[in-house]
Structure formats: structure tokens, C-alpha cells
């Protein structure tokens, strides 16, 4: 198998996709152990429009392993980060690729990637429940982690008015005397 270097992967993404597709890219190198052997982590920020193309491109390198999609509520928009890894199976060969994309709150839509990676279903369903992101093309399945009778339009991990308030009062906390 031919292994590309982390920088070459970033170059590949920039070359194969539209000019505006890759907004930001970063390659980190981490070392570990006494011998200071290193491994690389790639962070890419992708335009939501070319997101599916980016995943398709990723699939051409090697069938990627999707770990999880993490979400982050940034007030005006929601940041989704897809944590992939490729080149598994060889010592020191694996590279983590994190594809981030920003979705504005007015248009919370992202195409599903389950047609490319069927294993993404669980995490996409979780994303749908926790952040209220519409996953286009994902069949409408019942809640996976939240209770079935959970109120509609409430997304627990959102930090805005659609989220939930912290409802446990901590009586043991020391209050400041004003």
C-alpha cells in the first residue's frame, strides 16, 4: 500500500476539491515515549457545500474509520467535527483526520454519510437528537439515546434556548455573601 504523508493528504484535498472547499488546514505532529516516535493529526475545516465530496475523496484514500461526530454550539452556528482515521493496520502509519464544518443555525442541514460509511448511523442519529441537526437522507428512526417520549424541539446539548437548563440545584455549594 502506498502511504501519503500528512502534508500530501492536505494537498490532495486542496487540489481535488474546489478552491473554497478547504477553509483551514493544520497538521500536528505529536511525539511519545522515550524514543520520541511521532504520529500526525490533521485538522481540516471544510465548507458545508463540499462536505460530501470531501468524505468521498477521503474514501478513495483508504476506507476510513469513523470514530465519532462531535458537535459544538457556537451561538450563531454549530460546529460539527468528524473524527476519522486512515492507514490503520501498519505500525506508526495511522493518521487521524478531523474534518470540521460550520453550519449556520438557520440552515442546520448536512447530507448523511451512511451511504458511504454505514457505521456512521449511530453517531448521526445521536447528532440529530442532541443538536437538532437535520441529516439529509437518514431514515427517520426513533430516538436512539433519548427516551421515546422526549419533548420535540428540545436538544440537550444545545447551549441556546432550545437546549435544557441545568435543573439540579447544588445545595452544597458555598454561596457568596453579598
Amino acid at each position: 500500500m502506498e502511504y501519503l504523508k500528512p502534508d500530501e493528504i492536505v494537498e490532495l484535498f486542496k487540489k481535488k476539491l474546489d478552491e473554497s472547499a478547504i477553509i483551514d488546514s493544520r497538521v500536528e505532529t505529536k511525539t511519545a515515549g522515550v524514543k520520541k516516535n511521532s504520529y500526525s493529526v490533521i485538522w481540516l475545516q471544510v465548507n458545508p457545500i463540499s462536505f460530501k465530496d470531501a468524505i468521498k475523496l477521503l474514501c478513495t484514500i483508504q476506507f476510513p474509520h469513523l470514530a465519532i461526530i462531535s458537535g459544538n454550539d457556537l451561538d450563531k452556528e454549530i460546529e460539527l467535527t468528524y473524527h476519522f482515521s486512515i492507514y490503520y493496520g501498519g505500525r506508526f502509519k495511522e493518521i487521524s483526520i478531523n474534518l470540521a464544518t460550520y453550519l449556520p443555525k438557520e440552515d442546520l442541514k448536512i447530507p448523511t454519510i451512511t451511504d458511504l460509511i454505514p457505521g456512521a448511523q449511530t453517531t448521526e442519529r445521536e447528532l440529530k437528537e442532541m443538536f437538532g441537526v437535520t441529516i439529509e437522507g437518514l431514515p427517520d428512526l426513533p430516538n436512539i439515546f433519548l427516551p421515546q417520549d422526549f419533548p420535540k424541539g428540545v436538544y440537550p446539548l444545545r447551549k441556546d434556548e432550545k437546549g435544557v437548563e441545568i435543573k439540579v440545584e447544588r445545595k452544597d455549594e458555598v454561596k457568596k455573601i453579598e
Binding site: K30, A32, V34, K35, N37, Y87, G90, R91, F92, E94
Partner: peptide
């Protein structure tokens, strides 16, 4: 196996 593919901590040695 991450210990093999992307060794972290002492696994790198």
C-alpha cells in the same frame, strides 16, 4: 490496534 497503528505514551517504544 491503536497501540500498533498510532502508538501513544510508552507504546511508541
Amino acid at each position: 490496534d491503536i497501540r500498533q497503528d498510532q502508538p501513544y505514551a510508552a507504546y511508541a517504544d
